[in-house]
Design a binder for these strands. Structure first.
Lengths: 132, 132
DNA sequence: GTAGGCCTTGACCCGGACGTCAAGGCAAGA
DNA sequence: TCTTGCCTTGACGTCCGGGTCAAGGCCTAC
């Protein structure tokens, strides 16, 4: 199939596929007139990339999965390198969620304090340890 | 004070202050020779901006707080517009945390599945299992 | 008078994942 | 033949918060 069909079947754009090719992630064969041509295996690779992208993996992080599939393994995560990426991503997610939760708590406290100030006058000035 | 001193006292850079000025967020008075000049109130505005930036607010979101202070209110969040930003940010944080938690669960499940497959699953095409 | 440190504006650079033209080639239908 | 639609490469734009020069002005100290 050509680039337009592949893009449509994967729910993405031709621009994206050309970009992946410049990154060496999804190279294409060419027909006589220079058109890119892809097969069902390429669609599979592309869907692996897209799934991981939807999870927030950046392009480089999808590479081990793509290479794993291209090497003939049944799944993109059938290789140790992919598992390494999974574990690193889990650690990143945990750290990020923790940080965001902390920020959420602080912003929530600020909002509560500011709302109280509006209602009851400018008595408390600090976010912690109220007195008086 | 001039731009270098203000930057140093706020723990930021002169480039950042000039950038804020282009955004209309922290305009500066000028001396006869064209140098920017700031006072203690500007330092206060700048610190408000930096605090919110550290929380992940983008620059535009800090504007209501800055204008609130500039209007003479005791705190940057003493104005309704600031509270609106607080609430919207809380909603964004909640949505983001929820989404990341969902992704975290899915990635965790994928990792568990892939690890199980490596240990005992069907892998006729390769011998990643190690111990057979 | 000159070295050094601060200041000015302008302009380009970074990353990530593409979007959006521009100019033209190729294939198929009416 | 002409139109339509898909394809090609190349190049620039986007978002965001600045970083990093470069060329030159201002002020002070020695």
């Amino acid at each position: 199939m050509r680039i337009g069909e592949l893009a449509a079947r994967a729910g993405t754009t031709t621009r994206t596929l050309r970009y992946y090719e410049t990154r060496g992630l999804l190279p294409a064969r060419r027909t006589g007139n220079g058109y890119r041509t892809y097969d069902e295996d390429d669609l599979r690779l592309l869907r692996q990339i897209r799934t991981l992208q939807d999870f927030g993996f950046d392009l480089e992080e999808t590479r081990p999965f793509v290479e794993c599939l291209r090497a003939g393994h049944p799944e993109g995560d059938s290789c140790p390198a992919s598992l390494v990426v999974y574990r690193r991503k889990l650690a990143e997610l945990d750290a990020l969620i923790e940080q965001l939760s902390s920020v959420r708590a602080q912003v929530g406290a600020q909002l509560a304090r500011a709302e109280a100030a509006v209602l009851g006058g400018p008595e408390p000035k600090c976010e912690l340890g109220g007195h008086g």
